[in-house]
Design a binder for these strands. Sequence first.
DNA 1: CTAAACTTCCAGTAATTACTGAAAGTTTAA
DNA 2: TTAAACTTTCAGTAATTACTGGAAGTTTAG
Lengths: 171, 171
Amino acid sequence: MQDTDFKDTRAAFIAQWGTLGSNWGINRTMAQIHAVLMVAVDPVDTNTLMAELKISRGNANSNLRDLVGWGLIRKVTYPGDRKEYFEAEKDVWTMFCIIARERKRREIDPALQLLKSSSSKKFNSKNREQQLFAEQTKALADFVSTADLILNKVSRSEESKVLPFLLKRFK
Amino acid sequence: MQDTDFKDTRAAFIAQWGTLGSNWGINRTMAQIHAVLMVAVDPVDTNTLMAELKISRGNANSNLRDLVGWGLIRKVTYPGDRKEYFEAEKDVWTMFCIIARERKRREIDPALQLLKSSSSKKFNSKNREQQLFAEQTKALADFVSTADLILNKVSRSEESKVLPFLLKRFK
DNA sequence: CTAAACTTCCAGTAATTACTGAAAGTTTAA
DNA sequence: TTAAACTTTCAGTAATTACTGGAAGTTTAG
C-alpha cells in the first residue's frame, strides 16, 4: 500500500471513530484523539496531536485530561524529556471493560437509583395513573438492574472466557 | 401518596429520563416525550404534551415523528375525532430490542463496514505503522462483529429465555 | 533564583444542535 | 366548496456544547 493511500485510509478511520463517538454522547475530538493514539506505534505528544487534528492546545489538553480520566489513555514521560506523551490502551476487550464500567458509574447508577426510589414509593392503589407509574418504573428498574448486573460481571471476566461462550450460545 | 408528591415523583422521573437520553446521544426532549408516554394511562395528544413539557408545536411534532420512526411510539386515532394521539410501547424488553436494532442499523453497521474495509486493505508489511493499523482495526472489527452478532441474536429472543439464562450464568 | 520549556485554566467566541412560531398544507364534515 | 380543526414545514433564533488563544501556573536545569 502506498503512503498516500495509507494516509487516506487512516484519516477515514479517525473521522469515523469521531462520528461513532459523537453518536454515543462522546465528543468528536475526544474520540478522534483516542483513534490517533490507538493506531500510534509510539506515544504521541500534545503538539503532534494539535497538528494532526488541527486543534488548539486548550482543546487538546482538556480532551486528553478526560481520556486519562476515563482510563483509556495514559501519560508517558521519558527521563530527560520534559514533554508529556500519551499512549492508548490498545487491547479492545480491556477498552470495552473500561468504557462499560465508567458509563455504569457515571450514568447507569444514578438513573437506577432514581428508578428504584421512584418505584418503591407508597402509591395510591386506587389511582390508575399512580399504579401504572409504579408498574412501569418497577419494570424499568428491574430491567436496568439485571442488565447492569450482567454487564458488570461480563466486564470483569476474561474475554477468552466470555465471548466464545456467548458466541456459542447465541450465534 | 398525595397527588402533589406524585407529581413531583413523576416529574423527577421524566427529567431523569431526559438526562439519560442526552448522555446516550438522544435529544432530551425526545426522551422526555417518551417518558411521558410510557407512564400515560391513555394515548396523549400533541397539545397535552406541549403543555406538560412546555414545548412548541414544531418541536413536539418533530420529536414525535422521530419517535414513531424509531418504533418506540405509535399514532392512535379515534373515529369521529380528528386529533392524533400517541402511545408508547410499554414492554421494557420490546423497547430494548427496538433500540438495539435501530442503533445497530444506524450506527454500528456503517462503522463496521468501514472497520472491515480499513482492516482488509493490502498493507505494506515492512511498515510498522501500517502493520499496527492493520492489526488494530482488525481487532476492532472482530470485536464489533462479535458484539453485533450477539446483540442481534439476543434482541430476537424472548426475554424469558435470555435474561434468566444470562443471569444464571453471570450473576 | 531565573529563565526556558512546558502544562493548565478560563473568558470569550464559534459551531452545533435544538426550538419557536407563523405560514402553508391537509383532512373532514356539512 | 368552504371553513374549521388539525398537522407539517422551515426560516430565524435560542441554548448548548465545544474550541481558541493568551495569561497564569508549574517544573526543571543551570
